[in-house]
Design a protein around this nucleic acid. Sequence first.
DNA 1: CGTGCAGTTAACCAAAGAGTTAACAGGAGC
DNA 2: GCTCCTGTTAACTCTTTGGTTAACTGCACG
Lengths: 239, 239
Amino acid sequence: MPRERAARKGTASTMQRRAPRARAAAPARDAEASRARILEAATAEFAAHGLAGARVDRIAVAARANKRMLYYYFGNKDALFAAVMAQAYSDIRAAEQALELHRHEPVEGVRRLVAFTWKYFVTHPEFVTLLNSENLHRARHVKGIANIAAIQSPLIATLADVLARGEREHLFRAGVDPVQLYISIAGICYFYFSNRHTLSTIFARDLMSPRAQAARIAHMTDVILGYLLLPHAPLHRSP
Amino acid sequence: MPRERAARKGTASTMQRRAPRARAAAPARDAEASRARILEAATAEFAAHGLAGARVDRIAVAARANKRMLYYYFGNKDALFAAVMAQAYSDIRAAEQALELHRHEPVEGVRRLVAFTWKYFVTHPEFVTLLNSENLHRARHVKGIANIAAIQSPLIATLADVLARGEREHLFRAGVDPVQLYISIAGICYFYFSNRHTLSTIFARDLMSPRAQAARIAHMTDVILGYLLLPHAPLHRSP
DNA sequence: CGTGCAGTTAACCAAAGAGTTAACAGGAGC
DNA sequence: GCTCCTGTTAACTCTTTGGTTAACTGCACG
């Protein structure tokens, strides 16, 4: 099946655009806004139904755009999904950057990372299901995103710094791989959250009540700090 | 859409069946075998493509059965998926039961649980993707399985016993919730494994090489035991 | 040895789905 | 005020898909 023409790729956001008509009046035709609405609607649709379960027509309706526009801007369903993934990664990277772990004491830094990770999943449930979908497809789309490998590096570097400081201050054990630790922190948050529906059913208890969430955060912090803190370090218990 | 007739539910395995014709000769028509082949094919198909991405025709071909048979035995695609989930849970429960944690010292018991959980995911990757699919659908199918809540209890009870023994022997910290711990152990295994494709891409390193797997198991064990073991307990390091 | 049901088959169907066609309009540049 | 490109629209197509119809057969049982 021949593609009619190459879809415009993400560069839209880089081009200058002088405001049309009176400033801030709703423009009759606004490419940027249309594209953004489609991407937003697609994110919700793919997150809710997965790649195969998502419906192009539903996305168009939700975006208040003609179906044709999805193809005009993104090429096809698969490419649209790839754009959604790219945006999702870009979003979480931005949020991580705002964490500024280097500004905190090692113990507090780790605490904040655990709390942040949990909060991010809870406030961005779409990220979790999108990630699951992308892995069902063996990261096919993410592999096509150019600088994806560089994306996670900043946080890992910052975490490495936190670990190094903790080690230097004789608080943390030595030789911890920041990537392993990052994955473990993400994992204890992710599994509980992503599988909350089956887990709640199997354990017959509401895992997402405020109390349950607080207990989970406390437990996760205990696990990670229990692992990191040296036996003779001060503050071996959370306050 | 009216359902033509109620689909036979799982009770097939409970009914006695005298061997037809000469023993062990391939029977021309074998309901049990047909049903089993369909379930097996459906498991693979749903695991590979998710609920929406799975194709009923592909399942039929893979099961060497007429498509009609899926509807004859299971009713519809959704019910077939539910049957697959029920089987998947039943399988992992059986494997957990074979663990016999109560036979081991507390520290060794925890080690085995971590190693087992990892190994189970690696050898049953379909379980992981099925679980993701089921949660995408908010555990809709699992909620319909009668005794699903009871299913996980035995392992939790055994883990609680391991923790109690460890506590009594002044090895483990007190007050650990076995459900929280179980979820954490599963989580550190699950996230790494389930998201291995995106993680490998983002970190630009093969997370599934034998060396990487060994490193992961060592790290996970360190995390869990690092959390559980009391500061003055013997064997504070893995051998 | 024939009868009736569980099990099986091929062919069929209507709906839904991704993607396309072709025509049309806003508005910046001239 | 004409031109032309970008953005937008409605209607259409062709394939795939879950599910069904109806006929047929092996075989256990009487």
